[in-house]
Design a protein around this nucleic acid. Structure first.
Lengths: 246, 246
DNA sequence: CGGGGAATTGATGGAATTCAATTGTAGTGG
DNA sequence: CCACTACAATTGAATTCCATCAATTCCCCG
């Protein structure tokens, strides 16, 4: 093993240059030269068990996280108990950016399955960003992408009907699974109907009914959390220009 | 006049160090030393007439903008004509961050009144961010704040009822006017009921009805776009723990 | 194999949309 | 300056979609 590759307490390589998630993660688009300088970026790894928080709203912000394995949800809680899921995150995606703004996390991040993240100390990220142009640029892109994604969710919540929202959600999941080398047509959702509902601004019963409707219409085959998309174009058509749309 | 202060075509100083919006804008929190280096950041100014776009979705992204005077809305359009307003921006706020992600703008930015912006060429911002730690940090905070804000809107759209949404909107506007030295209780909205509705995921009639209801209940005095908040606490109470909330 | 959360499905009610008519207001030009 | 126009906002009545309440059913996990 090369001496330049650091070893964590768990005995695992943490070097980005050795990671197969590269294409999906922060180092995307960087030159080999730049990539080799990244090895000091990752502070270590952290395993999170299903249902356990990676961080909680109100906690001091010190690092962002790159998801190495597994998946998460982020949510915001209102005083009266109402919950809003603000996003679902998969491997390669960066989580924790909300904390930069105030130095405290503004939402909760909870593992949907047993997961592992790379810990990226924020101070170190800023430091390296000043030296490595590619890292700086990529980091900014990641943040901007999050903003654009949020705008898409706002569009969904603000001007789509229940079935359109679910169709958009399924197509989005499919696309992200594809990007990770999984099947575009068949996948396993890690979140409950209630979590999907919270994300889409719907009640779990409505989500369930929409799934049933899709099944009746031959758009998807649903078996609990296992989804098979039968008519991709049908789902797409559902999103754009539903005649009686609000 | 000092030689270090650049002059635009319009004959105006563009230096951040001379700007009274400092507290609200990108240079916030920077040291004097750092601030003096910012004078090369702003490429120039641009005036935008009411209803005119600052940029459009699909346009090449080259700069972000700091609003010097006036206000804007950003919106996303769906193929079928549906519009979702994703935000309203006021003086000192940064607009255009959506473009970093793909090098193309993903939404439209339209002036709600005759306005003026400082043009901040993005390449120059990245360049200076590598040299000026305070600028880098502040820029990251601005982006993160946008993400947190969007999460708040998602909460609003996903789990609040019509009147709660409007109350939250009014309180948010009030707070932002306050931060700019205007009255917290009395202000003029620059956007139409339809634009407010689009932002809040409601139809304009629903917005209008909610305004009327607030007036009946003695919470606000509404005269078209002129708003006077009579019972701030009443509005706050509306938001949290409405008994029959979804 | 049994228990319990997750999901489905049905019946009912309610909040917001839709359709429609009217009023109000700001801006324009005679 | 006032009439006129066009757009913005208000208000009412009917409809629709989703939430709510409730009862099973289905799995998954211990």
């Amino acid at each position: 093993m090369k001496a330049t590759v650091p070893i964590t307490a768990a005995g695992l390589k943490t070097a980005c240059s050795q990671c197969n998630l590269l294409e999906l993660c922060l180092p995307f688009g960087m030159t080999d030269t730049e990539l080799n300088r990244l090895d000091e970026l990752v502070g270590g790894r952290r395993k999170i068990k299903r249902q356990q928080p990676l961080y909680r709203a109100g906690e001091l912000f010190e690092a962002i996280y790159a998801i190495r394995a597994g998946s998460f949800k982020t949510d915001v809680l209102l005083e009266d108990g109402r919950e809003q899921v603000t996003g679902f995150q998969m491997t390669g995606e960066i989580i924790g950016l909300d904390g930069i703004s105030t130095e405290f996390h503004s939402c909760n991040a909870v593992a949907l399955e047993d997961s592992e993240v790379c810990v990226i100390p924020y101070a170190k990220l800023e430091e390296l960003s000043r030296e490595i142009e590619g890292l700086q640029h990529q980091f900014h892109k990641v943040m901007s992408r999050e903003i654009v994604r949020d705008h898409g969710v706002m569009m969904l919540l603000g001007s789509m009907r229940a079935e359109e929202r679910l169709a958009a959600f399924l197509l989005n999941m499919s696309q992200r699974f594809t990007a990770r080398g999984f099947s575009a047509a068949e996948f396993h959702l890690r979140m409950t109907r209630e979590e999907i509902g919270s994300y889409l601004g719907l009640k779990l019963e409505t989500v369930s009914r929409a799934f049933s409707r899709f099944q009746e219409d031959g758009l998807v085959a649903v078996q609990q959390k296992h989804i098979r998309i039968l008519d991709n174009d049908g789902l797409k058509k559902l999103i754009q220009h539903q005649p009686g749309a609000r």
